[in-house]
Design a binder for these strands. Structure first.
Length: 104
DNA sequence: CTGCTGACTGGTA
DNA sequence: GTACCAGCCAGCA
């Protein structure tokens, strides 16, 4: 069974709109634990198979972060939503970043 | 309980 | 710009 924190994190990630991205820290904050970015990463790693757009969760400063060793797939999914990636960074990160998730 | 392990982050050099 | 580092925290042995 998932812990409360895990469920909250998954719920938050599911609210990220297509074409937008959020950092592990943003998700952690939205889930109520601003400093649990690493824990969020662990949850994303184990979120395979679930109905969760984990590819929209990236690292700080627009860096891609990980994707179970399948970064190419992460880039492809983002590109399919109109999010361009170059030099290992999401372009227009500041504009595409989804903050304050949970407040609408 | 203790002690790792990370899809992390912000600070410093 | 890059590199290293301490702090962080859920999950698991």
């Amino acid at each position: 069974m998932d812990s409360v924190f895990t469920r909250r994190v998954l719920a938050v990630v599911r609210r990220i709109p297509p074409g937008r991205v959020a950092t592990y820290g943003d998700v952690a904050a939205a889930a109520g634990r601003p400093r649990a970015a690493r824990a969020v990463g662990n949850i994303m790693r184990d979120s395979g198979g679930r109905d969760v757009p984990a590819h929209r969760v990236i690292a700080a400063a627009g860096k891609l972060g990980g994707y179970g060793g399948r970064i190419e797939m992460k880039r492809a999914l983002l590109r399919a939503e109109g999010v361009l990636v170059s030099g290992g960074r999401v372009r227009d990160f500041k504009v595409r970043r989804w903050r304050r998730i949970g407040q609408q």
